[in-house]
Design a protein around this nucleic acid. Structure first.
Lengths: 120, 120
DNA sequence: ATAACATATGAGCAATTGTTCATGTATCAC
DNA sequence: GTGATACATGAACAATTGCTCATATGTTAT
């Protein structure tokens, strides 16, 4: 635990106990990074549409591009990103690649966010 | 509802019924934008730390900067962003500004994400 | 009034991001 | 084999982002 210094900030600590309390409750660096990365992955309109689409049905890249009226390349780039984040998974079948949500948790997170947005 | 054209994509529609089904289930543009914006607001390590801190206690900018070991200016900029998104709210008191989470929903969303990240 | 402090904010800049374009790989039909 | 199709991917480029720096605003103390 670091001493309560101001470091390079311009102002001083006002409530020393609060600062200490918050520092003790701090998440570890890995959790912060991972959590931010998951939210960031969901934080783009195109990827929101993709996840929404895949929540309806498993889909191939081709159909996704058509449904979202986007380039196959653009969709493919985003699919790779979502797959790297383990948000979606791929099933190969012949020359087609079928994508689907990797986990039910993702849908829960997605719908929690949607609920927040639509209720107000 | 648009006809099932390929638009500027390179490939054709494979499963016409699936594409139609996905298009019918599509979110309206505003919901897509709002949802992406909320997730994007949570999708940054600094803002994750800020929200975590404010989940412990209401805090002034000064203490937040000290707790996160960041510049007052950097924190202030992010606070403005979060406030514009209605994720946090401000309570003025003298020359101090106390920030806190705007809504319990935010904490639910935050913890749902955290749960997803820590369980695997 | 003057100084000190808490905070906000605009400009600027490096880093990241989302798309397009061109091209590569893999599978199928012939 | 050749061509067509489904998809992946690197490069490039414009747009966005998160910070720093300087400065402005507003409150308190003297």
């Amino acid at each position: 635990m670091q001493p309560l210094e101001t470091t390079d900030s311009c102002c001083n600590v006002i409530h020393e106990d609060t600062v200490t309390q918050v520092r003790e409750a701090a998440m570890d660096e890995q959790a912060v990074t991972d959590l931010a990365a998951i939210f960031a992955a969901l934080g783009d309109p195109t990827r929101v549409r993709i996840i929404r689409a895949l929540s309806v049905s498993e889909m191939c890249v081709c159909d996704l591009a058509a449904a979202l009226e986007m380039t196959q390349s653009a969709v493919s780039h985003q699919l790779r990103l979502l797959r790297n984040m383990r948000i979606i998974k791929r099933r190969k079948s012949g020359r087609m690649n079928y994508y689907s949500l990797d986990d039910e948790h993702i849908l829960t997170l997605f719908e929690t966010g949607l609920h927040h947005v639509t209720h107000r």
